[in-house]
Write a protein that binds this DNA or RNA. Structure first.
Lengths: 217, 217
DNA sequence: TAACAGTGGAACGGATCGTTCCGGTCTGCT
DNA sequence: AGCAGACCGGAACGATCCGTTCCACTGTTA
């Protein structure tokens, strides 16, 4: 088939179109592969995407570049979800919905678990800060709604996300279901209840999980 | 110093004693190192123990051997804790105490996270089965006490342990504290409460986490 | 049809790691 | 005293893995 359509360059077919499609396919494959194993070789991404290694190196300067982009995307997704959630009028629903969507999208694995495998950009630092601010705002609204027990702090959100991300079975959809279950248990545990003992030990402190963002050895 | 004491061979000093001491030191180092990173090189264990590599290979046929032993020890610890807990008269306290001790000892990382890095022995299979039976007994007693919400199943214990093991900061003692907090939240979430919605999705099924025990690729 | 963007995949070089091996030391026994 | 050998430290080896480069090839565009 020769140049199939007259449309300037939008539709598909032709070398340009394949390249554009590959942009997507590669990112998707990279997400899947590195979510499954943060230390996966770059060849695994190429294989999964059904492309050669060159197709990867044409787009990214190296592995670190790809990881950084992936992580940054996750961060942006987190921010976007938080912003969207802030539009929800019901305080508790905003918080619970936000967390659920973040868990579903596995944003935590994308950000925290990939951190340390590359040197972050300044923009990522800014985005991370903004992510924290937005999450804090959501949290405080949730607390104001009175459904959170009083000895819970914002940083417990990190514990919660970690707990959900830790759930992992071979099937992706089943993983999502089990994470939802874990999330429900955790949210119930964080909610006000008549007769529960106070949570033990000092609560997680600000920045206590920042060590993950330092480059590993 | 020549042979220092007259006691037959019990106390210490002398090549034999050092060897006996090394047995301990090495196992301890291996536990610490592989708990921190299941894929750590064997040299890291030797370094941490302050011994040469030979001291390791004199005791274990290879890395797999060491891992297997470590994992089996964890399994035995789990069984021992469960047996001890079954002696506790209060049903709920038996369950909660058991889980807390298992979390404190990081038995989950020792067993589940190390699985798949070696071919298990038959005895390990038997012990694992026994571990499941004991845990189920404890769980059923806890349920009988009425403090567990009705839609919780034994397999939720796996989710709970995974969530606690996922909490990890550089300092070991702090890690223990945070895990206790996570555990408290989860137990609160699993407890009966007046107005909570039922847990979403099908509950974890028996053997749903067994894939971890299969040798990785 | 000439130039070239885009690609597949072999090949290279470096790093890592499990395991072996050898030379040395100290001990326990004769 | 002295010797055989248990025990040890750590260098060296070989296998494997992985990131990156490179080149030949293909269809497209001008």
């Amino acid at each position: 088939m020769p140049t199939p359509s007259g449309k300037t360059d939008a539709p598909l077919a032709g070398r340009r179109a394949q390249a554009a499609r590959n942009d997507e396919v590669i990112l998707e494959a990279a997400r899947a592969v590195f979510l499954d194993d943060p230390k996966a070789p770059i060849a695994a991404v190429a294989e999964r995407a059904g492309v050669g290694i060159s197709a990867l190196y044409r787009r990214y300067a190296g592995k670190e570049d790809l990881l950084r982009q992936l992580c940054h995307d996750g961060l942006r997704r987190y921010v976007a979800e938080a912003e969207a959630a802030l539009g929800e009028p019901d305080d508790w629903a905003a918080f619970a919905g936000f967390v659920a969507r973040v868990v579903d999208a596995d944003v935590h694995s994308l950000t925290v678990h990939l951190a340390g495998t590359f040197t972050p950009t300044e923009e990522m630092g800014r985005d991370a800060m903004r992510a924290n601010e937005l999450a804090t705002a959501l949290f405080q609204r949730a607390r104001a709604s009175g459904r959170l027990r009083p000895d819970v702090v914002v940083q417990d959100l990190g514990l919660l996300l970690e707990a959900c991300a830790a759930v992992r079975v071979p099937d992706a959809e089943r993983t999502r279901q089990l994470r939802r279950r874990q999330l429900a248990v955790l949210l119930a545990g964080l909610s006000t209840a008549p007769d529960t003992d106070p949570l033990p030990g000092p609560p997680p402190a600000a920045g206590e999980f920042d060590w993950r963002w330092q480059r590993r050895e």
